[in-house]
């Protein structure tokens, strides 16, 4: 196990069923080891991923959130990932205003063939979040306003 006091971040990944979920499957098939901090929640498409879900994850205690779908042009539903991207562009300012640390939200494209990228992305986010420390600030706000 880790050194006793090491902080283990809790990361929630909202991913689409057709690209990133399969990319993570491929990382498994290829036995690519990566930190066990991520919990995947599967959606049909990143187009479904409402920004409430990101806020909810932080409220519940996540230290980082990853949203990942198909590469532009590869969406199983033609254009869902474009919706997700546009939403991200628009909502990041809003999330910033809400007081959410944008460095804790990650947005990537990972295809079904990119098992290695999935492992790398998760490793990177885990490391980065570990250095940033637990996201207590937002949790406290959430608790206070509840």
């Amino acid at each position: 196990m880790n050194e006793t006091n090491r902080f283990e971040p809790r990361i929630i990944a909202y991913v689409c069923n057709w690209c990133t979920y399969l990319g993570a499957d491929l990382a498994g098939t290829n036995r690519l080891e990566y930190p066990a901090n991520v919990r995947i929640i599967r959606f049909p498409c990143t187009g479904r991923i409402d920004f409430n879900l990101i806020v909810k994850a932080f409220e519940a205690g996540a230290d980082a959130v990853l949203v990942s779908g198909c590469h532009p042009g590869d969406c199983h539903y033609t254009a869902g990932n474009y919706h997700a991207r546009r939403r991200w562009m628009l909502f990041r300012q809003l999330l910033d205003t809400l007081g959410i640390d944008l460095n804790r939200i990650h947005f990537t494209w990972i295809s079904a063939a990119e098992g290695r990228k999935w492992a790398q992305v998760v490793t990177g986010i885990t490391e980065q979040t570990r250095q940033m420390g637990p996201y207590t600030a937002y949790r406290e706000i959430a608790r206070a306003s509840a």
Partner: peptide, 9 residues
């Protein structure tokens, strides 16, 4: 087709 784009919108 069940993509869910409408849900987020």
């Amino acid at each position: 087709m069940g993509c869910g784009t409408c849900v987020a919108l």
